[in-house]
Design a protein around this nucleic acid. Structure first.
Lengths: 229, 229
DNA sequence: TCAATCAATTGATGATTATCAAGTTTGCAT
DNA sequence: ATGCAAACTTGATAATCATCAATTGATTGA
């Protein structure tokens, strides 16, 4: 793996403050691998072998129950995922698959737990990371329980636009089926909801969404500091 | 506060392994208070002053968005709540109110963070606690996104029955309005869903639910090890 | 004991969402 | 380009869920 990639990983808040020797120990035990799109990296219910880090590409976390399936998160570089299962040494609650060709760094779970026990700075960083993730899921649960599908879509557009620079345009980086699943609706209803947002000044063509009237969209989404990130 | 209560708190997994002097430091800085039913202890959006521990009674965690409100958790003795906000020193994402007359131990957030920084065993325990909580919310999110209201109710009954001894009976410890909100439905639909479960061998009178045919109920709930605790 | 009040149920209706079944568009490989 | 396959859209219908209204049932306090 390139040293530029190592640099990026070292700068993640989980790894930033730890001792160099411990960071090196983690990396030297790790595997760095390239996966095509559509590969399942993790099956829910399995015990965690590795802490995963998306270095390039995109990874979908999803859960299933019987026939049904739902997207729980989409992970972009450079981010760790499924840290809690590794720390607890308990089964994964989510599955993971690549949404695009991806490069994944995999650090053996045992190495993570060992370093966790002897590097206080790392342990502290892991706590911060877990607390952050926890709060994100709580937000998502409130989003699901307190908003209608249309409101979730409107809020998502506003949030994505802000993250992409705030110029009134949003580019989807993955397909609408996955977005629909993430938002907790069917692909059909995403289509209809997007069409319905035309009344609130939103237009779209393909994977490009344009916010024509931010005030109107905000009236519809009712953005909330305690739900939206 | 009684030494028996101190004992119970000391035995919580978050506090069990820490140095006695640090535990004493936390307790000596803490307030122990009695609240009547229906008191709001915490308002979402506020910055955390205290880590709370329910020593007796019952506390509801809930979130609001505009007019709508939803129950996110019901906390029973002896358990801490809203640890993540204290650790991150960031605003509460949930509000909390007593569902019954309660005794609450409140440890100043600054004290928690100080001890966290100098007691490695405590820090480790906090990580474990956060990871556990994180996983619980993930389960709840899957529960919401992957199941219908009827299925959530059926799964909840099975789970509650197991926790209460597994003798085929469940006693509600709080009102149905709150249960409905926790399950993500209206009180009216909880009523109808409970009535519908009669076809699956469930009968109820007041706050007592009786499982007449566990197999039939499980067929309806489709219990899932990766959703139900 | 008797209102008074609140919780819970039931019925009627409407909104939201899912499912099924066409179509249409888009992207891609030949 | 041309055609294929997949993604997306649209329409019709059904399931799920929320809201409003009315009633029943339980609890409490004078």
């Amino acid at each position: 793996m390139r040293s530029a990639d190592q640099q990026l990983i070292r700068e993640l808040s989980v790894f930033r403050e730890m001792k160099q020797e411990n960071f090196d120990a983690l990396l030297s035990a790790a595997y760095f691998q390239r996966f095509p799109e559509g590969v399942t990296l993790i099956h829910e219910g399995d015990l965690p072998d590795f802490l995963h880090i998306v270095v390039e590409g995109m990874v979908e976390l999803f859960g299933a129950c019987g026939e049904r399936q739902t997207t729980l998160d989409v992970i972009r570089p450079v981010t760790t995922f499924i840290l809690a299962a590794v720390i607890r040494d308990d089964v994964y609650l989510k599955s993971a698959r690549t949404l695009a060709p991806s490069q994944i760094l995999m650090i053996p779970a045992t190495a993570v737990r060992e370093v966790f026990d002897r590097d206080a700075a790392f342990a502290r960083a892991v706590v911060g990371e877990l607390a952050d993730r926890y709060r994100c899921v709580v937000r998502e649960l409130k989003n699901q329980k307190l908003r209608t599908g249309l409101e979730r879509l409107a809020a998502w557009i506003l949030q994505a636009e802000r993250q992409q620079g705030g110029d009134g345009r949003v580019r989807l980086t993955y397909d609408k089926r996955t977005l629909a699943s993430q938002l907790g609706m069917t692909a059909e209803n995403l289509s209809r909801n997007l069409a319905a947002l035309a009344q609130h000044g939103v237009s779209s063509r393909g994977r490009e969404i344009i916010i024509g009237n931010r005030d109107a969209l905000e009236t519809c989404a009712r953005p909330d500091a305690l739900i939206d990130a």
